[in-house]
Nucleic acid binder design. Structure first.
Length: 480
RNA sequence: GUGGCUAUAGCACAGUGGUCAGUGCACUGGUCUGUGGCACCAGGAACGAGGGUUCAAAUCCCUCUAGCCACCCCA
């Protein structure tokens, strides 16, 4: 139905619905990345004996206040909190560990063989200011080990995090530190305060506030003057109690033995209150990343290697975690040491894209069914279903009339073979099989089409890759 | 929450006050009811929203919304 020449139709309404701030659609063309990551998480979980747990997105507000900490940014300004119809204060989960700890207690998991190893993958919510790789609804996967405080557990979890990325050609460095227990931190904060008391005037405005509110943050201020001061400030590791010190030393010994790339970063402090002892983050190392619009290579003076203790950019941490030996008890459960690691999926997708990560093409259709004429269309529709039930990956474009158009679709979808059914074929009960790669085609008896297709598809069967389940860089079909 | 930059077809861009806006890719159709990758032709589709200045606004100003960047912080 042709329109009148001058009649302009605007398909975009002036008052269009749009995404809420910080929300994001994951489009079909990106699903390959997401499927790949989900498959990888599942296969790592299986290889390291973690069992999946799916927790509600909505929990009691107090769960997060109690676990994450009242004075943290997450609780103070980033939670989606509201009252439900029974006037209970509920919160969209801002992180995963609190829920896992809650479930551990609620389901009496202390009666299971320890440690209990669980993983999760799903959406989380924080009302933060959006930026690249930072959304208000974001996806994280996480691994938690509860009920064991042996240092080897820490090392193994870090190893897992490390190889999750490095084995898919995303070079990463582990940033490792120990924040000790509450007593260690109290003593350390006092030492810090003493150190800064006499040097207060050289601090930037922000840091003067930090001195009162969150002295640990003084150490990673970006201001050059503050950094100078921070360099000589007392270090947290020197204030660890013997117990925490010994534990941390053993963790580092394990890491050394593993020969993986890690940095002892004495300034690494994490933003949730429940951490005790070992904390770590996974930072991508800047090798061979494709930065869009990057200038001419070889131009300008080469800066020294990026200092590994300075984050290249704000959103660059791919993941992080640490011990939370006191959390389960804080939430009313039995004393239960635990450690966890969680990472953001959006950031990993960005990283994969910026490195030109090659994904295996979608599974190609085996067969494209083309038809010409009404009676052929009827027969083709039935044939399609028969082939599908015979477990072939079959595709079509039945609503199109022209053979040319249909062949274009077949080509675009990279079908291996085309079956062509026209009036002539209907007349003598045959069908055309066209090999889309060679262009060769043959007429075969219609009743023999399935065996004939089967015979021809054999040349492709060798390529099927079975996932070896050890983190190999292969794409596997997903059941989320 | 603070500061800065930006907003033109599905995507990437051009147009910086003067014919109700161009290009490339993509999309739909045609050349071609019997054959895909190529070619040629045609078509649909946009100035983020609202207000102001002006004879005239995509272009200048204000507000809002959103994105990005730097903080804050985090995944």
């Amino acid at each position: 139905m042709p329109k009148k020449p001058n009649e302009k139709v605007n398909y975009k309404s002036k008052e269009m619905y749009q995404l809420l701030r910080g929300m994001k659609d994951i489009m079909p063309e990106d699903q390959n990345y997401w499927n790949f990551i989900r498959a990888r998480v599942n296969s790592f979980a299986q290889a390291y004996s973690f069992q999946r747990i799916d927790l509600p997105i909505l929990e009691q507000t107090s769960l997060f206040i109690r676990s994450v900490g009242e004075d943290t940014d997450i609780v103070e300004k980033e939670m989606y909190t509201f009252r439900d119809k029974s006037d209970e204060s509920v919160t969209l989960r801002p992180e995963g560990t609190a829920g896992v700890a809650r479930a551990y207690i609620e389901h009496g998991m202390l009666n299971r063989p320890q440690p209990v190893k669980m993983y999760y993958l799903g959406p989380f919510f924080r009302y933060d200011r959006p930026q690249a790789g930072r959304y208000r609804q974001f996806y994280q996967y996480g691994f938690e080990v509860l009920g064991d405080n042996h240092p080897v557990i820490d090392a193994q979890l870090m190893m897992m995090a490390y190889f999750f990325y490095s084995q898919m050609n995303i070079p990463v460095t582990l940033q490792v530190n120990s924040v000790g227990g509450p007593q260690c931190r109290t003593r350390y904060k006092k030492a810090l305060a003493d150190y800064y008391k006499t040097r207060k005037n050289s601090l930037c405005e922000d840091c003067k506030k930090r001195l009162l509110k969150n002295p640990l943050r003084l150490l990673d201020c970006k201001n050059p003057d503050c950094q100078l001061l921070a360099a000589d400030a007392p270090q947290l590791v020197d204030y660890l109690s013997e117990e925490y010190h010994d534990h941390f030393v053993k963790v580092l010994e394990h890491l050394d033995a593993l020969e993986i790339s890690y940095v002892l970063n004495t300034r690494l402090v994490r933003g949730l209150d429940y951490y005790t002892g070992t904390v770590f983050e996974v930072w991508p190392t800047e090798g061979n990343r494709i930065i869009p619009g990057e200038g001419v290579p070889g131009e300008g003076p080469q800066e020294g290697a990026v200092q590994s203790e300075v984050k290249p950019s704000a959103q660059s941490a791919l993941g992080g975690g640490g011990r939370y030996d006191l959390l389960v008890k804080t939430l009313g459960g039995p004393p239960t040491p635990a450690i966890g690691f969680a990472a953001g999926i959006e950031r990993l997708v960005l990283e994969m894209k910026s490195r030109g990560f090659k994904l295996p093409a979608e599974l190609r259709p085996d067969i494209f069914v083309a038809q010409l004429g009404d009676s052929a269309r009827k027969k083709a529709l039935k044939l399609f279903e028969e082939l599908r039930q015979a477990n072939y990956n079959v595709t079509e474009s039945f609503s199109k009339d022209g053979l040319k158009q249909q062949m274009e679709v077949a080509n675009r979808r990279q079908a291996k073979f085309a079956l062509i059914l026209g009036q002539k074929e209907i007349m003598d009960s045959t069908i055309l099989i066209r090999d889309m790669e060679s262009g060769l085609q043959e007429t075969v008896d219609f009743s023999k089409v399935v065996p004939e297709i089967k015979k021809r598809l054999e040349k492709y069967s060798v390529v099927k890759v079975i996932n070896n389940n050890r983190g190999a860089n292969t794409l596997v079909p997903i059941n989320e």
